[in-house]
Amino acid sequence: MNCEEARQSLDAYVDGELELTRQLGMETHLAECASCQDAAERITTRSSILRINMPDYKAPPALKSKVRATLRKVDRPNPQWLTDHGWQIAAAAALVVCSCALCWTWLSLSPSKEKGLIAEAISNHSRSLMDSHLVDCASGDQHTVRPWFNGKLDYSPPVPDLTQAGYTLIGGRLDILEERPVAAIVYQHGNHVINLFVWPATDQKIDIDVQSERGYHFCGWNKGRLNFFCISEISAADLETFEDEVREHVNL
């Protein structure tokens, strides 16, 4: 290998991207040629200077929720889509009627545990609003609320701080779901209160898509060994965002 050939692939050599045979050829050449060796060193130095000093742009905080909103929109077929595919919808509808009938039979035969859970959660939520017994521990600080649950429960519920996303922590409360004490973590969004129930998924992992009943929206999911269920008067979209935020801020 002569100097001219070496210079052509010097960058790739420094980057560790040369094939083995050329790599060996390069090493032989560099051992004999001080000037090429010098050049290789300069490339290495510059590359590391560049990596350390390269100005980078951080995504603006709002971009994440914009991206999510865009994705959610395509994930839910919109009315335009409905009008474009009317006949397909009709065919699908027939199928849905049949499967609904089937589901209903199945449901009525085996009473769903989730149904009971939802009913309980709804009444817990509405009671928490009426009795002026919203929180046992009133604090906007996750480091106050989380330890408060210590000793009151046999697990330690996560208390994510979602202030940045517009969900303000107001405190924590003990509540009962399915005959066991659970953590109720309370947030505020606008004028509305959100109850987030958290408990160990010992016998059942829940997965409840956003639904509405008696003017409340709610949804439930499982992450790690815990079940999460949130309920509020806020819109379905806001509740979804809330769920996304909780999911993201809870590492189990």
Binding site: D56, Y57, K58, A59, E248
Partner: peptide, 10 residues
């Protein structure tokens, strides 16, 4: 993919 948001924006 959301963890790569900064890289994408950059």
């Amino acid at each position: 993919f959301l963890p790569f948001l900064d890289a994408a924006y950059n």
